[in-house]
């Protein structure tokens, strides 16, 4: 399993760049992943809104929310989510939020 050295901690990520232990997530790590994985130089308020929404949902339910629910609760349509996170809600936003990669028929 690849690791990234982040400050003084080693963060384990999978081949697709998803953080393996959601507890290792920090806002700084999100900024780092945003740059490395999504090519985003900075994260705006709207990015953070999505990221924090995903994290809160994950903490409560142990899984990423339905995409339509994410859109409705953040007030952002899917097109805008793709503008924010070029790889989309699952492969982009969830990755930056430190959630496991949504898997299955998706």
């Amino acid at each position: 399993m690849p690791t990234i050295q982040f400050g003084d901690v080693q963060v384990e990520v999978d081949e697709d760049g998803f953080v393996q232990d959601p507890k290792q997530w920090t806002e700084d790590l999100a900024r780092y992943l945003a740059k490395q994985e999504e090519g985003l130089d900075n994260l705006t308020e709207d990015h953070w809104k999505v990221i924090h929404y995903l994290r809160d949902y994950y903490q409560q339910f142990g899984i990423a929310p339905m995409i339509r629910k994410l859109c409705k609760d953040t007030g952002f349509d899917l097109k805008y989510i793709y503008e924010l996170f070029p790889s989309g809600p699952a492969k982009g936003a969830c990755k930056l939020a430190g959630l496991p990669k949504p898997t299955g028929c998706v």
Partner: peptide, 11 residues
């Protein structure tokens, strides 16, 4: 397949 637990399903 996705690993959805019951509380998330209900939500």
């Amino acid at each position: 397949n996705m690993g959805i637990p019951r509380p998330a399903l209900l939500d």
